[in-house]
């Protein structure tokens, strides 16, 4: 079943056509990657799916309904979580407080002008423990997020995107700027998103080795256009993809 479907998306900024007629189908319980060289329009395409921008043309369907021009906060309520290339967090709040907000939001409690009841607070705390356990950050619970390493901030952001109980998680270059060991941690977490939580993952990435080993479906973009879509084997065998982006040695190496 297709969970997230983008059809003929177009987006321009002034005279620059950033995304031109790109479609993609993200299947439920899949790990789907969007790749392409710098300036291919990956992030712009990604942002039209998450409602950061609205596309100029085309439609986006999610979980059986059209969301093309749905405000971003409503998409979250509909079951979409996302992270950003530079971790988007609350630096001056603790890890615990960073996670609290999304849980309140999902429970419809964020608008309360008074603190919650004991039962509500306990439920929130239990959920925070669960999320921190999942990304392995339990020991950093009461630290300020600004003090965490880049990789831990990213894990915290992934936990935040899970705090609203999404069906799909959109990750914008989750491995960007990370050391090898931290990359492995994130790769493990992305696998767990599907295996342990049963979620669907769409991520933008340019680390080809990671993409080919992690994704089960890949959308390749180049200069704002859709170049190919397929399984890792199909993509690594695709001549157009090899010419435009990969470089033979990278693909052969894998």
């Amino acid at each position: 079943m297709v969970l997230l479907e983008a059809t003929a998306i177009g987006k321009r900024f002034g005279g620059v056509i950033a995304v031109d007629d790109v479609s993609a189908s993200v299947h439920e319980h899949s790990i789907h990657a969007v790749i392409g060289p710098n300036g291919a329009g990956k992030t712009t395409f990604f942002n039209t799916l998450s409602g950061f921008y609205f596309p100029d043309g085309g439609t986006v369907h999610f979980d059986g309904r059209e969301i093309t021009r749905m405000p971003n906060w409503q998409r979250v309520a509909a079951g979409m979580g996302r992270t950003f290339q530079t971790p988007s967090i609350f630096p001056e709040l603790t890890v615990h407080e960073n996670l609290q907000l999304g849980i309140w939001s999902q429970a419809g409690q964020a608008f309360r002008l008074r603190g919650g009841t004991r039962a509500q607070t306990q439920a929130v705390e239990a959920r925070i423990d669960e999320l921190l356990g999942f990304v392995n950050l339990a020991s950093s619970r009461s630290r300020l997020v600004a003090e965490l390493s880049h990789g831990s901030q990213r894990l915290c952001e992934i936990a935040m995107s899970l705090s609203t109980s999404p069906k799909i998680v959109l990750l914008d270059e989750p491995m960007a700027g990370l050391a090898e060991a931290e990359t492995e941690r994130i790769v493990g977490v992305i696998r767990d998103l599907r295996e342990r939580l049963g979620l669907t993952v769409l991520f933008v990435e340019h680390n080809m080795r990671v993409v080919l080993s992690l994704a089960d479906r890949i959308t390749v973009m180049d200069r704002g256009r859709l170049l190919a879509e397929g399984t890792p084997n199909e993509i690594s065998a695709n001549e157009a993809v090899r010419d435009a982006y990969l470089g033979r040695e990278v693909v052969d190496h894998v």
Partner: peptide, 16 residues
């Protein structure tokens, strides 16, 4: 307070 620090993130936690 969260809006002061990062309004975009607050919106992406499903909050108007």
């Amino acid at each position: 307070v969260a809006i002061r620090q990062n309004e975009v993130r607050v919106r992406y936690l499903g909050i108007n």
